[in-house]
Amino acid sequence: MALQTILQHLVNGISLGSLYALLAIGYTMVYGILRLINFAHGDIFMLGTYIAFYSMTAFFLPWWISFLIAIIVTCIFGIVLERAAYRPLRDSPRISVMISAIGASFLIENLAIVVFGGRPKAFPIPTIFSKILNIGGVSIVSVSIFIPIITAIALFILNYLVNNTKIGMAMRAVSKDYEAARLMGINVNNIISFTFGTGSILAAIGGVMWGLKYPQLIPLMGLMPGLKCFIAAVVGGIGNIRGAVLGGFILGLGEILIVAFSPTLSGYRDAFAFVLLIVILLVKPSGLLGQNTTEKV
């Protein structure tokens, strides 16, 4: 295999990995605070893509306004979802909330089939994202360069938010001890809404980027990426933001490289994620960057 081909595969893997990372952060943030796997996260991601699509095609808005609208509307949707499906169950056993999450996911998917229709839609791509660059024999479409950059910016902002702001401190407090945080005068409900909003914003950014890279929209498009990013979050250490990014990259690069180096295995690329999950659970259940905490509850 020539050097250029290997570089080409690495570039492809990094760009896919960045997308996974964006989504995995959303899972990890919600888990970190609520100890809840938000199964509807992949569907929020799907909604973000569709909102951007309809802003551009039905309302003829310029792409950057459409993307902004997608981010805002998806953020609101995430907050509403938390209020409707998770908040009423705040004091119920964790299993009820999880079932509610699965229910929410099915509801959104099937509503999307009814509202958007089952036939695939083509996501319009602004020319700035579809330029093809050739760097030393490695061909890169410009969106593949934007994706890692945007992921890095989002990560930087998020990192600042969590570690250097008051609301970030509150988030960390809620995630450490929910009851104690409440006793210290933190409005836990607001913090949780804020977390869902932030997670949904990342999902919307991921969704728009996904649409630009794979411009084929179907109502179930969030299903597989959602599961894989959940795995990425577990692999990196669920609840740990840096771990989620690491997990996303491992998954993205792994998938591309496994198909690249072993064509006969290419039908099993989805299996790679699940095998990875099993291996990590056997070897290091807390994830690569997770701390070995003792069970609280």
Partner: peptide, 16 residues
């Protein structure tokens, strides 16, 4: 090269 129904990324196969 092979892929599965529903796959969206074919860059690895096409690269080869």
């Amino acid at each position: 090269a092979y892929y599965q129904t529903g796959d969206q990324d074919f860059t690895a196969q096409l690269g080869n």
